[in-house]
Design a protein around this nucleic acid. Structure first.
Lengths: 251, 251
DNA sequence: CGACTTGTTGATGTACATCAAGGTACGTGG
DNA sequence: CCACGTACCTTGATGTACATCAACAAGTCG
């Protein structure tokens, strides 16, 4: 337990929530907003490398990411690791734990994170009294499912080169949606080892593949910052059409 | 379009829905049940090999599987296929399409299927007026996410032998939950090719691996029926603890 | 300063894919 | 009835994309 967690006293006011300012998020009704404010039980910071949720344990909390990056992962008994997805600002963590008692995966912080904490017990109330917010929860679950579908075909059927190209594009899209990307450039706190564990390849082979794409002039990755220099070429490599943004429909 | 679809006139009464009889499903309130009855717009049969939903198209329908097996899958441009998950009685199909306009994957019937059809437009009403049912929808989405997590680590980090052992156990659990399994024995309409595409290996290698597990006396797979003869040994191979059933909590 | 993390490269090994062929079962049309 | 095609399973031969092992350099941290 070298990882520290502490509760912050100063809170970001939901009215001024940095996530709400982003166009990707719809605006709440006053009523819903009042509920959210009250639903929120606090904030929590987790430093880089810290554990947010652990496989096998039931968490009394749900989280939304306010800032920082994290990742969901599972382990096999002998230590092999699969990274399931990355968590960025605006993501919702712990729904599975709330639905099934115990988490079936863990979540770790990639850099220092600020989380908004909600109480799991009130999820029922949320569904009963605030259907629009409940719909958002389901929308986020469906979006997660989409990403997992994409990862699954990537890990299962793409070559290493295609995998890396796909993941670079994916991370860029995610960063863009969170407002963290500037013309194909963004800060990304992951290591090559983590990239490898997300793609189901060894870190050595990941390194060679990344390097090959670098030398081909398609990407650059230095000092935790990514730059996609030729997105069309990367897209070409993955063998797929560009995806459009999907604003949440109103119910 | 060699595949046929037709709408049946005789309908299974929701009161007598075969799925409700199974213990895995909670009982609806009278009010919720009335809504479901009216939410349901009809039934549809799809014969083996038929397409239920197609990647890229927006479906006006949602489905629950009443009987039969299907599978969700994605394709790469050159035809490589990844099977994302299997659909069994009680499963809900098309939520992604309802949330995002277009489907990002396709669904195909493995054998003749009977589907319950719902209208996508009324999903909002469902959330507004029937929070318990909305919670069920989200619960199903969270369960799907769990399965995808399991598949992802399987495809990404397990060896072929571990993969096949895992999938045999998974299919058995699913069949059991649907009441289709008798002491480790169940009818399963998948081919070795489909098994391979679910696990991200070639059908040749899948064949050799299945055959090896057969000869070791752990499983048998003949004439579309599976028999897990030694579940403990299979579990041992995958390197994981048994999972408990997860009844949906009441909200 | 040593200990550790992260990236990098070369040498070697292997778990898988691919290619090719043949076998059985089944349906379909002549 | 047979001839033919097709779907699915099976096996052997060969190739390769990856993993593993090992070593080292640069940066960071206590």
């Amino acid at each position: 337990m070298s990882k520290k967690e502490k509760v912050r006293t100063r809170q970001v006011d939901c009215d001024a929530c940095p996530l709400r300012a982003r166009e990707a998020f719809r605006s709440f009704s006053d009523d819903d907003l009042d509920f959210i404010k009250e639903f929120k039980t606090g904030e929590q910071t987790v430093e880089a490398g810290g554990l947010i949720l652990s496989e096998g344990v039931a968490s009394p909390h749900l989280f939304t990411v306010l800032s920082g990056w994290g990742f969901r992962y599972k382990l096999l008994e002998d230590g092999r690791r699969q990274i399931l997805n990355f968590a960025l600002p605006g993501d919702f963590l712990g729904v599975q734990g709330a639905m099934f008692d115990a988490m079936d995966h863990s979540v770790e912080a990639l850099d220092d994170m600020l989380l908004c904490v909600f109480s799991r017990e009130r999820l029922g109330e949320l569904f009963r009294e605030h259907p629009e917010v409940a719909f958002d929860v389901t929308w986020l679950a469906a979006r997660e499912e989409r990403i997992l579908d994409d990862f699954l075909i990537t890990v299962g059927r793409r070559t290493a080169r295609e995998k890396v190209a796909f993941m670079m594009l994916h991370l860029c899209e995610r960063a863009e949606a969170a407002g963290l990307c500037d013309d194909g450039k963004f800060a990304c706190p992951i290591t090559q080892n983590q990239m490898a564990d997300a793609l189901g390849i060894s870190h050595v082979h990941a390194n060679r593949t990344i390097r090959s794409l670098s030398q081909a002039g398609l990407i650059s990755w230095k000092d935790k910052t990514f730059h996609l220099k030729d997105r069309d070429a990367l897209l070409e490599i993955t063998g797929e059409e560009p995806e459009e943004a999907h604003p949440r429909p109103l119910i």
